[in-house]
Design a protein around this nucleic acid. Structure first.
Length: 561
RNA sequence: UGAGCCAUGGUGUAAUGGUAACACUGCAGAUUUUGGUUCUGUCAUUCUAGGUUCGAGUCCUAGUGGCUCAACCA
């Protein structure tokens, strides 16, 4: 397992409750630690999975154990190799290497053999009830279920029927194999759970070899056991499955894997249901699973989030059993923290207004040396051209500035970053009163932070040369949802109604020329605007940047007052 | 009229039965050629009621509140 060290993540933290379990096991002499990350390949991994990945791989790492990647591919109708591939890519990108790559489908034959064993022990039977009958006879949480009329079939008959199920003699849904436990059990999962269903479906790995497929409950614990998983860590909603998990393992007398549950990750403004995310993709609400507005790992990668930031986030969020809703801002904090150290700084104007330096020679070009990253000298410097006509951010000028505004305004002087001090002398407007141009004068002695008489200015703004600026498409992303989408949306609306109509806006920005080569995920901080990632599709001819996170901006609050 | 899980600042997560802490957020200030970063300071927490104890966030009892479970999904 290889993870580059991330600063800040090595702080001493107390043990989470799963680590306590492991340390207790080690104290008892059970020193081997084997975990697994078991996604179903029916969608892309999201930030919630990232927490699970960091936990499972982190546990193995911490205790000198191993972590497997196992695909829980027992439902062929929902699964696809595209998802298998994306999951592997995302786990690797997060910085983890799995000890073994397994598939529940690798175990289909063994699982089948064990099922016959269960039948022979009288612990399983073939049920001919319809789906509807099964549902009705299961009872409710308050009312006990009733036994299936087929529950007392002989071992021979069960065996024969089960073999014929496998042989493909029956249509989908005609029969199931059920565990014989207790139809009055207070835990619904223990009321003769279905072990196998008939599904004449093509499986992405086993092809058409099988027409019966094991259910999660029958496959998961056994798969863990086959892999000698010591600590099977899953989310809280599986806690009610634990008695069943243990029941199968005990009845089969196989390696005693044990299950532990932790609370899944929830985040503000974020939808974590794979089913819902799939709907967004299928309905083309987003461009795909890696649309930067999605909460998927692939989307975050494209947005410019770093693996280290996500790992640090997962570490901070912790592991407990309490329901939680993490503020999206916490994730962004870790992204900012990481990017602050590594992202190169560039100047870019998203909403331009022209500035003419009236006392600067026409046709002259001057190169200014700009620091790429004030936090990292090794990032070097670059030359940026300066001319008589520039563009600055429209927000960086106010004709009637409020009291604490210290950027450009009539008669006020500001520093053009890394170049001259300029003073606004005149405001040019069109017939409708819109500002079209600002006329400024510059102080020729104010290079390199100096000024002719030692005066200082508070405002420092970014700029680009009108002649040299490159155009680029910038995608500004906001949260996909304007508010929390409930699991059950109110009558008359769908969860699509909760989508933020301004989740994606595109602007044409003007960039300093050094950005022309940027492509393929390079990250930049556009000064006082935010962090941007050069889109993978970006070319020097068509520059496209995705916004990652916004800088902390107390000045915008001031503007709102 | 079920079973299981959970309850600590605004948000998360800690605390051998012994001074409730850490991070994020908020607020205030300092530094700063990014209103960023960095630094300093600061506000704010044990669901309720009993009980055990010299001492309870922690143990016990009862209550309250929240979550999960009735797919041939995982």
């Amino acid at each position: 397992m290889s993870v580059e060290k991330i600063e800040g993540a090595e702080n001493e933290r107390s043990l989470n409750f799963i680590e306590e379990v492991i340390e207790a096991d080690i104290a008892k002499g059970n020193t081997r630690v084997q975990t697994r990350f078991p996604p179903e390949p029916n969608g892309y991994l999201h930030i919630g999975h990232a927490k699970s990945i960091c936990l499972n791989f982190g546990l193995a790492q911490k205790y000198g154990g191993k972590c497997n990647l196992r695909f829980d591919d027992t439902n062929p109708v929902k699964e696809d190799v595209e998802y298998v591939d994306s999951i592997k890519e995302d786990v690797r990108w997060l910085g983890f290497e799995w000890a073994g790559e397994y598939y529940a489908s690798d175990y289909f034959e063994q699982l089948y053999l064990w099922a016959e064993e269960m039948i022979k022990k009288g612990k399983a039977y073939v049920d001919d009830q319809t789906q509807e009958e099964i549902r009705q006879n299961r009872g409710t949480v308050m009312v006990a279920g009733v036994n299936s009329p087929w529950r007392e079939r002989s071992v021979e008959e069960n065996l024969d029927l089960f073999r014929r199920m496998r042989a493909g003699e029956f249509p989908d849904g005609a029969r199931t194999l059920r565990a014989r436990i207790d139809m009055a059990h207070p835990n619904m999962l223990m009321r003769d759970p279905i072990m196998y269903r008939i599904l004449h479906a093509h499986h992405h790995r086993t092809g058409d070899k099988w027409c019966i497929y094991p259910m999660y409950d029958y496959a998961h614990g056994e798969s863990d056991s086959i892999e000698k998983v010591t600590h099977s860590v899953c989310t809280l909603e599986f806690a009610v499955h634990r008695p069943l998990y243990e029941w199968f393992i005990e009845e089969l007398g196989i390696f005693p894997s044990r299950q532990y549950e932790f609370a899944r990750l929830n985040m503000t403004y974020t939808m974590m249901s794979k089913r819902r995310l799939l709907q967004l993709v299928e309905n083309k609400v987003v461009t795909g699973w890696d649309d930067p507005r999605m909460p998927t790992i692939a989307a975050m990668r494209r947005r410019g989030y770093t693996p280290g930031a996500i790992r640090a986030f997962a570490d901070r969020v912790g592991v407990a059993k309490r329901d939680n809703v993490i503020d999206l801002g916490l994730l962004e904090f870790f992204v900012r923290e990481d990017l602050n150290k590594t992202a190169q700084r560039r100047m870019a104007v998203l909403n331009p207004v022209k500035v003419v330096i009236t006392n600067y020679p026409e046709g002259q070009t001057e190169m200014f040396e700009c620091v790429n990253n004030p936090e990292d000298e090794s990032a070097g410097k670059r030359q940026v051209p300066f001319t008589r006509e520039l563009y600055i951010e429209r927000d960086d000028f106010m004709e009637e500035p409020p009291k604490k505004y210290f950027r450009l305004s009539p008669g006020n002087e500001v520093r053009l970053r890394y170049s001259y001090l300029v003073k606004c002398e005149d405001v040019i407007k069109d017939s409708e009163g819109n500002i079209t141009e600002l006329r400024c004068t510059y102080d020729p002695d104010s290079k390199h932070g100096a000024s002719s008489d030692g005066r200082k200015v508070k405002g420092v703004i970014h700029w680009v040369s009108a002649e040299h600026a490159k155009k680029a498409e910038i995608r500004l992303y906001n949260t996909l949802f304007t508010k929390e989408c409930p699991d059950d949306v109110a009558e008359g609306e769908t969860f699509f109604d909760y989508i933020n109509p301004e989740s994606l806006t595109t602007v044409e920005a003007l960039l300093e020329p050094s950005l022309a080569e940027a492509a393929g995920g390079d990250k930049f901080q556009f000064e006082r605007v935010g962090y941007f990632c050069a889109d993978a599709d970006s070319t020097p001819e068509k520059l496209v940047f995705n916004r990652t996170v916004t800088l902390k901006d107390s000045w915008t609050k001031m503007n709102k007052e």
